[in-house]
Design a protein around this nucleic acid. Structure first.
Lengths: 156, 156
DNA sequence: ATAATAAGGTCAAGGTCAGACAAAGTCAAG
DNA sequence: CTTGACTTTGTCTGACCTTGACCTTATTAT
């Protein structure tokens, strides 16, 4: 159960979750810890710690090299900005999921709402539609707009 | 009586019956156990462990892939009925709103969630799409399935 | 400066799974 | 005997993972 990549992901997340915004690690060291090829670390980073999910990776080569993983403090205060910037045109499934994840972290939506929205905009539900990226953007626009319109009522 | 498919069904049921809500298995492993083609497992799942019968399937491909079978608790039984009956084909905007309102009254979803879903399936968001009624059904199917799937986590 | 060393990055190849789909088999009802 | 629903198998595709060879960049020793 749970391959190496998943373990590495969990390990990194556990390091991050302890109130830290960013961590620094060494690729070879981590690879050795998990007994895997160093490039496996890159694989994990590029598939799981993406910008879409709110992470930024910095690194340096050579002596005293490092990999730094920064959790981007999701600046989600302004929903209308998201609507007009990220959702004006099209959005693919991965980016949409990333967006929803950030909204979740910023506590703009709940975990349940996140799952609900994810399901409705999933590639699976939208498969037969050629213009699904446009569609997806429109749907999320609608949802976020609905949120903004009803902020008062939700306050209860 | 009792072809291979029936045996596989019973086997899976026996795994589930032991107080477990969900089980995880590997397709090839199970296929080998029953000396059948791996795709036979898919056949059993798609004919016997359907949403209509109160099961939800999740899976992942690739290394460490799995198939997870979740039994939907009976309180959610109504949901699966809705999914298979009312949302099997198409649904127009008005009917969708009606359905959402019912779900709201039954306290299956919150007011916020209702608004969110309403926004994503609104005629407005789906206007440019000729087959929007099919689309709408697919989206709501996805959302309700997601609800069933995650009801334990929602308990928190 | 230059060379050696110590990092990390890229990419392609290969491996491991599950999904999709169609072809072929089985069997009961008419 | 034919038909049609159900079952079983086989093949191909694509998603996901792992590794290793080779490349680039930074530091340190000569």
């Amino acid at each position: 159960m749970s391959g190496i990549s998943d373990n590495i992901e969990r390990f990194i997340l556990s390091l991050l979750s302890d109130q830290d915004e960013a961590i620094e690690l060494q690729r070879n060291e981590l690879a050795q810890h998990f007994r895997c090829a160093p490039s496996q670390i890159n694989y994990v980073l590029s598939t799981r710690f993406t910008v879409a999910r709110g992470y930024v990776i910095e690194s340096r080569r050579g002596g005293n090299g490092y990999i730094r993983i920064v959790r981007v403090p999701s600046e989600m205060g302004d929903l209308s900005k998201i609507v007009t910037v990220q959702l004006s045109g099209e959005i693919d499934e991965a980016s949409a999921y990333g967006l929803l994840e950030q909204l979740l972290r910023a506590e703009v939506i709940t975990a349940r709402e996140c799952r609900l929205l994810a399901a409705t905009v999933s590639e699976n539900a939208l498969k037969p539609f050629p213009a699904r990226d446009v569609l997806r953007a429109g749907m999320l626009r609608g949802a976020l707009t609905a949120l903004m319109l009803n902020q008062e009522e939700d306050a209860r």
